[in-house]
Design a protein around this nucleic acid. Structure first.
Lengths: 340, 340
DNA sequence: GGCAAATTGAGGTACGCACCTCAAAAAATG
DNA sequence: CATTTTTTGAGGTGCGTACCTCAATTTGCC
C-alpha cells in the first residue's frame, strides 16, 4: 500500500500537523524536525497524492492563449488545438480559452496583457513578436502572480520566461539542408518569400537557412527576401518580377508560417513541381501541396504538441513545480509525403 | 463555480443517490430518470472531477512494459524513458515497471504473459514480434481484465488491441524518399542491412523502402537484405563481400533499430561519408554519427513519446475511456544534423 | 385492489490531504 | 528562576465523489 501522510507522520515520529507544516512549508518548524520528516519521506518513499492535494485545495486552473487576430490556416489549427485541449482537460479542472489580439501592434498587446487581473486568469501563453512594450507587460504580469509562457514566438527577450516552440535558426538551417540536398547538385538561385521581413522569427529562419546554403551548397544562392504582406495580388506581382529577373531559380523557400498566399501566387505563372519547394507549418493547404508534389518538404512544429506543452508548463509553474524539460522540447519536424 | 454532483442532483430534480447511480451506471434506474440526469448534465455543463473520483475510488494504476532481454542502445533509451515516466507519474498514482523477456522466443513471451495475474498488474505494453503464441496470450490477458497495448512492434495481429508505434511501411517509404533525393541523381545500388530478416517490422520497412525507390528513383536498386544477427565480426564479413561484389553502391540503409553494429562493420573498410546512409532510431551512436556526417538521416520514432503514449492509452482503457487518437499517433521523425 | 418488484431518496462513511484552532510542551530569553 | 517565544500535538472540517444500507415510494402485474 502506498504510504499516506499518516504513515509519514508515524515514520517520522511526529504528528500529522507537523507533517503538514513541513510538506506545505509553513513557518514555525525547527530545522531538526524538517529533517526528520524529509528523511522519513526518503525512507518510506512517500509521494504526495496529487488528486487528494487538488481536491483539498479545491484548485482550478484558468489559462489563456493570446493569439493573433488575423491569420490563415495555421491560426485555425491553433484555435482548434486549444479548443480540443480545453475539452480534454476539463476533468482535470483546467480551463483554457483564447483571446485574439492585434499582435502586430505592440501597444495592443501590452494593453491587453495589462488589463488581465490575477483573479481572472492563472496563466497566459502569449504569441506575439518581440517588442519592449510586450516585454514589459509580460514582466508585470509575472509580478502580479500570473504565469506567462512565450508561445511560438519571441524566445529572445526574456530568459526568465518559459518558451514553447522551436529554435528558428535551427528550423531555417533544417530547411536549408533539405533545400540543398533535394536540389541534386543543380546550381542556381533560391527565391525566399516571407509575409514580412520584420518578424524576428523569419529573420532567424533566414539566417539559419543562409548559413547552411552558403557553407554546404556553393552552387546555390539565396535571393533577397520578398514580402507578401498576406496580399495575393501584391505577392503575384513581385514574385513574377523575381522570376523574370532570375531565370535560374531552382528552389523556393517560404519562411513564414502561412504558405498559401505565396505559393498560390507563384503557381499562377510557374509550375511549382519544377522547383524544390520548402515551406513551414502543416496546414490543410501545405499538406495537400505536399501530397501533390507541389511542395517537397514542410518544416513544422506540431501545434497540438505546442499547445499541450504550454499548458503543462503553465500548470507546473502554477504549482511551483519545475516542468519536465525533456518532454517539453518542441521538435522541428520534417514532413514529406511519406510521413504525413 | 464549477457544478458538483450536488448541483447536478438539484438541476435534475433527483437525489444524490440517483445521480450516483446514473453516473456510475448502476442498475435499477428508470430510463426516464437517466434522461433527466443526462439532460441536466448537458444543461449545467457538469464534468466529473477526476481528482475526486480517483480519490474516492482509491485507484492506483500498475502498468508493465514487456521489453526484450537483449538489445543495444535503443533498448537502453526505452528503459530510461520508462523509468522517467514512472518517476513523473508517481504523484498521479501510476506506477510503471519493466519485465525483460526473450521476446524472440514466442513461448517465453506467452509464458510470461500467462503468468501475470490481474491482481498484480492493471495493464501491459508488449513489445514482441508477431506469433500465434503471443497473440493468444495477449487475448487471454484481455479476457482476464488486464489491458494490453502492442508496443512498437506487431501491429498486424490483433486489430482490437491498441497499437503504439509507427506504420513501418511508411517509415521505410520515408527512408526511401530521403535516400532517393539525397542521392542527387546518381545511379547505383543500395546496401540494405538488418539484424534479421525474420522481423515483420524490418520486412515492412523494406517493403515501403523498395516501393519508393522502384517507383520514383529508377537509377537506384536495392540489394538483398544482409543479416548481422548483432554480430560485429559476421557483419563485417558479409558486408565486405557485398561491397566487393558491388562497386557501384551509393547508399546504405540500415533497417533495424540498432544501427551501431552494421555501421561500425562498414566503417572498418569503407568511408561512410561517401555514401548516403539512412538508419532508424535515435541513439547516442546514431546521433553522433549524424553530427559527424557518417549518417545522412535518421528515421525515428521518439521513445519518450511512445512510452508516455502507451501509458496514457492503458490508463484510458483502465478507466473505460476512449484514448484521444490524435494525440497518440506516433510521428515518423526525420532527423538531420540541423534538427537534432 | 393487492402484492411483489422496481425505483428512488436519505444519510452515512471513506478516500488523502489542506487548513484551521487551541492547548500543551519545549526552547530561548532575561 | 520566571517569562516569553517558538515549536509541536490533537482534533476538527471540508474538498467532490464512490459506495453502502435501509426505508419510502412508485410501478407493473394478476
Amino acid at each position: 500500500m502506498r504510504p499516506t501522510t499518516k504513515d509519514l507522520a508515524k515514520a517520522a515520529g511526529v504528528s500529522l500537523a507537523t507533517v503538514d507544516r513541513v510538506l506545505n512549508e509553513r513557518p514555525n518548524v525547527s530545522a531538526r524536525t524538517v529533517k526528520k520528516v524529509q528523511d522519513a519521506i526518503e525512507r518510506i518513499g512517500f509521494v504526495r497524492n496529487i488528486a487528494a492535494v487538488n481536491l483539498a485545495r479545491n484548485r482550478t486552473y484558468r489559462f489563456r492563449f493570446v493569439l493573433p487576430e488575423k491569420g490563415d490556416q495555421y491560426l485555425k489549427e491553433l484555435l482548434r488545438e486549444v479548443a480540443a485541449a480545453n475539452a480534454a482537460l476539463k476533468p482535470d479542472l483546467v480551463s483554457v480559452d483564447v483571446a485574439q489580439v492585434a499582435i502586430e501592434d505592440p501597444h495592443a498587446v501590452a494593453n491587453y496583457l495589462s488589463s488581465l487581473e490575477a483573479g481572472a486568469v492563472d496563466g497566459v501563453a502569449v504569441m506575439a513578436p518581440e517588442s519592449p512594450q510586450a516585454r514589459d507587460a509580460m514582466s508585470r504580469l509575472c509580478e502580479r502572480g500570473i504565469k506567462v509562457v512565450q508561445f511560438l514566438s519571441g524566445q529572445e527577450n526574456l530568459e526568465k520566461l518559459d518558451f514553447v516552440g522551436v529554435d528558428n535558426v535551427a528550423a531555417g538551417a533544417t530547411a536549408g539542408r533539405i533545400m540543398g540536398r533535394f536540389s541534386a547538385g543543380r546550381a542556381g538561385k533560391i527565391l525566399i518569400v516571407a509575409e514580412t521581413i520584420l518578424s524576428q522569427d523569419s529573420i532567424k529562419r533566414r539566417l539559419g537557412f543562409d548559413r547552411v546554403i552558403n557553407r554546404c551548397f556553393p552552387g546555390l544562392r539565396s535571393l533577397p527576401t520578398l514580402e507578401t504582406h498576406s496580399d495575393l495580388e501584391r505577392a503575384a506581382r513581385i514574385v513574377k518580377t523575381a522570376f523574370d529577373h532570375n531565370p535560374d531559380i531552382v528552389g523556393v523557400y517560404v519562411v513564414s508560417p502561412e504558405a498559401r498566399v505565396p505559393l498560390e501566387a507563384i503557381a499562377r505563372f510557374a509550375d511549382l513541381k519544377k522547383f524544390v519547394v520548402v515551406a513551414h507549418e502543416r496546414t490543410p493547404f501545405s499538406e495537400q501541396a505536399l501530397r501533390e508534389e507541389r511542395v517537397d518538404a514542410i518544416i513544422a512544429q506540431n501545434p497540438g504538441h505546442a499547445v499541450r506543452s504550454a499548458i503543462r508548463i503553465l500548470r507546473a509553474r502554477a504549482d511551483h513545480l519545475e516542468p519536465v524539460a525533456a518532454q517539453e522540447r518542441i521538435r522541428i519536424e520534417i514532413l514529406l509525403a511519406e510521413n504525413l
